[in-house]
């Protein structure tokens, strides 16, 4: 299941990060989004193009097109 499909406030665990753009992928990993990281979608914007996600004890905005490339399982 991709991160963009996960329910709000349902904790999930990252299984794979399939983002093609290396620069963005590495930056997300450097911010603490790695395989095995617990992640939580806190909010979706009005057109659902941007998500508000929590990982590594911090809160980040993440575009939906990137969230689609992150494979997660419910924790």
């Amino acid at each position: 299941m991709s991160l963009s499909e996960i329910k709000l406030n349902a904790p999930a665990v990252v299984k794979e990060i399939n983002i093609i753009d290396k620069k963005i992928k590495f930056r997300l990993m450097e911010l603490g989004l790695n395989v095995g990281t617990k992640i939580l979608v806190k909010n979706r914007s009005i057109m659902k193009r941007t998500l508000l996600v929590v990982f590594n004890s911090s809160c980040f905005t993440l575009k939906e097109n990137l969230a689609r490339d992150i494979v997660v399982n419910y924790a």
Partner: peptide, 9 residues
């Protein structure tokens, strides 16, 4: 090319 908003709250 890409529209990324990676912003820490």
């Amino acid at each position: 090319n890409s529209n990324t908003l990676l912003l820490e709250f």
